[in-house]
């Protein structure tokens, strides 16, 4: 009896998680706790909400908040549709599919600095994007569009497009990997029973792909909320504020400001809270749908 219990205890899968937990305890929890404590204390180390109050009263923070939400929703939706379509298409083996896969993966390998140079040299009024559009006759070379003067919503849309160019392959890969497990016969069975393409997609592909889709979207949303580098490389600080861009601005540019550290840490906690809430909502909603589907 005793022996059985001991074997059961040692066979418990939790043991396999111990290394991960130790790793995170060592390298993640400590800095994170110090960040959280900093965010809830004032200069003298006394507990207070002052940091949060101060931040929420700033206009740039509200703009950053709005921009971040717009960016996250816009990029998540656009990237999901494109990546899913691309993954489904690439999953059908065709003549150059191998080559096309490699081509679509290239932007992912670009270092962030290179992405910055690539797009910045394009977005100048006399950059390559306008050169190309002029050579197609789509733009008047005497008075080309000044992309860099875009602000607010237009700038966010521009950033969504650039971000999509860079991260689309990484979303696609996850979906493509999920499709590997996908039994072609299911789809074919659907066809035999007279389902059209859309129905097959909705009733057969989506449910089977669900864990993968959820993973891909969650990871994407978490990354999208934390957008900053691309915005800073294209427009610089302050022009198109995002939440994490505010953190970087506090850490990088106004390093010695009275509240720079505190603000950076407090915004990180806010960002983490936002992501946590939206991910839980997303998980709950996507979980509920599954239940609903089962009942029907």
């Amino acid at each position: 009896m005793n022996r059985m219990r001991r074997a059961g205890f040692f066979k418990s899968p939790i043991w396999f998680l111990v290394p991960v937990i130790i790793y995170y305890a060592a390298f993640w929890i400590r800095p994170t706790i110090s960040v959280i404590i900093e965010s809830f204390t004032d200069k003298s180390g006394v507990f207070s909400f002052a940091n949060y109050v101060r931040l929420f009263s700033q206009k740039s923070m509200r703009t950053a908040f709005l921009n971040t939400i717009l960016f996250t929703l816009g990029s998540a939706i656009l990237q999901f549709i494109l990546a899913f379509a691309l993954a489904l298409w690439l999953n059908k083996k065709f003549r150059f599919s191998n080559l096309v896969l490699f081509i679509t993966l290239i932007p992912m390998a670009f270092p962030p600095a290179a992405v910055g140079i690539l797009w910045k040299t394009g977005l100048y009024r006399f950059g390559w994007i306008n050169s190309f559009l002029c050579s197609l006759g789509l733009m008047n070379p005497a008075n080309p569009v000044d992309w860099m003067s875009f602000r607010n919503l237009y700038a966010v849309i521009l950033l969504i497009i650039i971000d999509t160019w860079t991260v689309l392959p990484s979303v696609m890969i996850i979906l493509l990997a999920g499709l590997q497990n996908f039994n072609k016969e299911f789809e074919e069975a659907g066809w035999v029973f007279g389902a059209n393409k859309f129905q097959t997609l909705k009733d057969i592909v989506f449910p089977i792909m669900k864990p993968t889709i959820i993973t891909a979207m969650i990871l994407r949303m978490i990354a999208a909320v934390q957008v900053w580098l691309i915005a800073v490389m294209i427009f610089g600080y302050n022009v198109v504020p995002f939440l994490v861009e505010r953190i970087a601005y506090n850490v990088d540019v106004i390093t010695f400001a009275k509240y720079a550290r505190k603000d950076a840490y407090t915004i990180s906690v806010i960002v983490a809270a936002i992501v946590l809430i939206s991910v839980s909502i997303y998980l709950r909603v996507s979980g509920e749908k599954q239940k609903g589907g089962e009942i029907a």
């Binding site: 100048y124 009024r125 860099m148 294209i234 610089g236």
Partner: peptide, 19 residues
């Protein structure tokens, strides 16, 4: 003044492209 000025660090690019 160029409306894109707040996104420009050095004038090199604007001067060289004759923008």
């Amino acid at each position: 003044i160029l409306p894109s000025s707040p996104t420009i660090d050095f004038p090199t690019a604007s001067l060289a492209t004759e923008e």
